[in-house]
Design a protein around this nucleic acid. Structure first.
Length: 174
DNA sequence: TAAGTGATCTCT
DNA sequence: GAGATCACTTAA
């Protein structure tokens, strides 16, 4: 078992990283309790040209964290009530992130953050054990035949080219 | 199918 | 400052 490091997400191949995150475990240490959840669904938001990516219009106070180095959390509020958990990827200056949409037994990005008690307090925090939210690899890769890729959810505003890209990944049959 | 909810961004 | 929009969930 290995705790992943910020440098493990420096690649610009965001879809590949998103796919590789499946089967890893999200570990939440909160108020003295530690819980592990297997990541089962992710989405890639890949760089400045991806029109579905919040950062495609440039750096703002919200999206600035995506332009920084990999391995930070990007947490934002959507629809007035749901916090979304993303892991920033790519080298400094390349805005990209992976939305963690689901873990085993918890489907949906809004429910995930509610169950794990994740809020914007974690936004821009480095992904470490000290911050109470990190990822471990238990060394059990997911069979590629079990991984399904589809278009991302809720991004029709990005136009057909970007909204149809198969940047959503999940483990079939859970 | 649509309401709920508030931060963010794009105009004035 | 106002108005539209939004990487969702739940109840009907």
């Amino acid at each position: 078992m290995r705790i992943l490091k910020p440098e493990d997400f420096e690649s610009k191949d965001t879809p590949r990283l998103a796919r590789a995150l499946l089967g890893k475990f999200l570990v939440r240490e909160f108020r003295g309790k530690k819980r592990r959840f297997m990541i089962t669904e992710t989405e890639a938001y890949d760089g400045p040209f991806d029109r579905a990516n919040h950062a495609h219009k440039g750096k703002t106070s919200r999206t600035g964290v995506m332009f920084g180095p990999s391995g930070r959390w990007y947490v934002y509020l959507v629809y007035g009530m749901h916090e979304m958990l993303n892991l920033v990827t790519g080298p400094e200056g390349y805005p990209a992130a992976i939305l963690i949409r689901g873990v085993k037994e918890v489907s949906g990005p809004g429910r995930l953050t509610r169950v794990l008690r994740i809020t914007r307090a974690l936004n821009a925090k480095v992904f470490t054990k000290e911050n109470g939210l990190y990822i471990v690899d238990i060394g059990a890769p997911v069979l590629s035949s079990k991984i399904v890729a589809t278009p991302r959810i809720g991004v029709s505003y990005a136009g057909p080219f970007w909204s149809n890209k198969p940047y959503r990944f999940f483990i079939a049959g859970l």
